[in-house]
Simulated scan of single mutants.
Amino acid sequence: METTINLMPPTVLTFAATDPSSGAGLQADLLALASIGCHPLSVVTAITVQDTVGVENVVALDPDLINEQARTILEDMQISAFKLGMLGSVENIAVIAEIVADYPDVPLLIDPVLSSGRGDELANDAMQEAMIDLLFPQATLITPNSLEARRLAYAIDDSDDLENASMDEIVDRLLALGPEYVLVTGTHERSPQVINNLYGSQKLLRSYTCERLPGSYHGSGCTLASAIAACLAHGLGMEEAIAEAQEYTWQSLRHAFRPGMGQFIPDRLFWAREEVDAEE
């Protein structure tokens, strides 16, 4: 008689807003987490009206509903990692901060979504301040791009000294807020290659370099942050998790497709189609 071994996948809970295009937001998180072998759980923070071009409207859910969604699933399942994306309102941020505070041993990854690729505002000054005050002190890792890192630093201190500050100085300010690590992504820089820099303990720990691909992509930041959360949930250390997640994200961008009139969407299931093509 054969014995069947049931290996349960690690679970990752994402707090994020919906995206009907599945390019970014909640749907992007679920695709990436499942693709890397995790069981994705979700709390909807807001409903958006958007496509591959931009965001037309955002309706934040009631914070009591956020709390009910999260508490119900957390009482039922053991979580391996939290991933936070677009949170919708100051009230939602406050509630989520209380929730994750009850699980201090679970890695907390924050992708501080401040605007869409088109530039649509997704987090006002009050929301940025709430993230900084309530969530960053609890964070294992925050993953701003270079533009978001500067905006967050200005939210802390808008003095003229920041205008010419180096990224190292910017990150020093972010690390002082409490996160264990800061990963600054370089997709918005003009360098020939994309360079993502990991900081911790007030210093640069490691740089990750990949080929810069042509085109504009909807949800690349969501994909990378979710992929890191998935790799951590599988037990990898931070530096290795980021290396694996970056390779996965780059491959999803290399296989991206353009189903609409706007940005390309990362193919987070690229490996499945590669296997089918190989069989044919």
Rank of each mutant, 00 (worst) to 15 (best):
V182A: 09
D168F: 14
E180Y: 01
S207V: 03
W271P: 00
Q251V: 00
E189P: 00
E189D: 13
D29Y: 11
A227N: 06
I170S: 08
A81H: 04
P20Q: 07
I73S: 02
Q251S: 07
R71T: 10
E274L: 07
S226M: 07
R150W: 13
P179Q: 04
E148K: 07
Q50V: 09
E121V: 11
Y199E: 04
E56Q: 13
V276Y: 14
K203D: 08
A130K: 07
V55M: 10
Q69W: 06
Q78L: 04
T209A: 14
Y181Q: 02
L61N: 02
L175G: 05
A153G: 03
P104S: 07
L33Y: 14
M238T: 01
A34S: 15
I170K: 10
L174G: 03
L31S: 12
A139E: 10
E91L: 08
S22L: 11
I195R: 09
S159P: 06
G219E: 03
Y208E: 02
S35Q: 14
V194T: 10
A278K: 14
L84I: 09
G88Q: 09
P137V: 02
T209W: 09
R273K: 15
I156G: 03
G178N: 10
P20Y: 14
L65V: 11
T18V: 07
P107C: 10
I66D: 04
N164D: 15
I265W: 08
S80V: 00
A243C: 03
L204V: 00
S159D: 15
L87T: 02
H188V: 09
K83C: 01
G178A: 13
R273G: 00
V49T: 14
R273A: 09
L162A: 05
R254I: 01
L114P: 08
S116F: 12
A230P: 07
L84S: 01
L253I: 08
N124V: 02
P112N: 10
E2P: 06
A225S: 15
R71Y: 03
